[in-house]
Design a protein around this nucleic acid. Structure first.
Lengths: 208, 208
DNA sequence: GTCTATACAACGATAGAC
DNA sequence: GTCTATCGTTGTATAGAC
């Protein structure tokens, strides 16, 4: 029971009430703030109040625009990756070099945020079933359907899952665990080390 | 989140009440209970009350013995793996089959808890810098010092980190993401699929 | 005048501290 | 056991856009 019968009023709010000009995009502001706070504190640690505070508005806006904390979380959890833009460039070229292109793209995408976005994603996946479902759906639909499915000689589902183990593990060690020398290795080194293993999962012999 | 409602006291009437003899190790009982509850619900989901309840004692004991929830968490975060028992069996045998033995041991250890322990560990590592430091230390000291170091022809640190990516990624996909068909695959299948890649990280050519 | 984005207040729940 | 802080959420009055 906080704030009950507290101060009636003395410094009435500095923030104007009522509808504001539409150019102030509150939805986008909330998503931006949510991305930051979820990144810093994870799902449970990020409070609706803190997010709204950072966005400079009332917590009730989260409910109004996203239906609640979960809705905001799902809206904010946007993998900074446009499949329609990236996939054609991945699939265009020698299928036997696909592993190298995937690793290089992976590093480029996630290095752009300094690893924060990947850390937030993994944190979300580990602690939030909805995030895990989203990730599962992403791996199944995108990696399997549009990458592995186009090159795999057999067992595409298993190959997609195996590809997922290598990419997620790389993200975990490089961006979350920050284990050296992998955390600071340049892209060429990582590609040379990881791409052959990824290539086996994509097109090599599995012997299963 | 929907905490468990108050349980009717009749179901707990068998639990002995009142002060216990000092020789019943209160501390160990709390650690055991904490390990179970943290495994089931993660750090934030595990409440001090639930842990104390399972240990059959008052929540105040947590403060008394561990100084708080954090202290209990760190005390309970013991990787369920005894290196001194497992490592000799890993290293005994053909170095070119080391990858297969590592994968099989990995599956045996973590399948024992149905994946709950691995999920809790990953959750901890992702959201708690102290847990991440523990994991980093484990990879550096045990995997590097006692597994990779004994067989790697070159770049042992890089090989240890790469080995970490494959094992952590496998744990993430099989136990946390539960992505099929890997989540339900039997040990032979997983070993056949993953061991060659792990073997390359351990003893193969890295081309870096 | 109508619509609706907004801010404030307060609720019920819950968990950690004492 | 009790207290208190704080959580996510909801109700409602308001004020500016339409």
């Amino acid at each position: 029971m906080a704030g009950r019968g507290e101060q009636p009023d003395q410094t009435r709010s500095a923030r104007p009430r009522g509808r504001r000009p539409v150019r102030e995009d509150t939805r986008a502001a909330l998503i931006t703030a949510a991305g930051e706070v979820f990144t810093e504190r994870g799902y449970d640690g990020a409070t609706v109040r803190a997010i709204a505070d950072r966005a400079g508005m009332d917590p009730a806006m989260v409910n109004h625009w996203f239906g609640g904390k979960d809705g905001l979380f799902l809206a904010a959890l946007q993998i900074p990756l446009d499949p329609d833009q990236i996939l054609p460039r991945l699939l265009d070229g020698d299928p036997e070099q696909l592993g190298a292109r995937v690793v290089r793209t992976f590093l480029t995408v996630w290095d752009a945020s300094g690893g924060g976005a990947m850390a937030a994603l993994i944190r979300s996946v580990a602690s939030h079933p909805e995030a895990a479902a989203m990730m599962r759906e992403f791996v199944s639909r995108v990696i399997l359907g549009r990458v592995v499915g186009s090159v795999a000689p057999d067992r595409p589902e298993l190959r997609a899952a195996l590809t997922g183990t290598q990419l997620i593990g790389l993200g975990m060690v490089r961006y979350v665990l920050r284990l050296e020398p992998l955390a600071s290795a340049d892209h060429d080194t990582v590609v040379a080390a990881v791409a052959p293993n990824l290539q086996r999962y994509l097109t090599g012999r599995l012997d299963v």
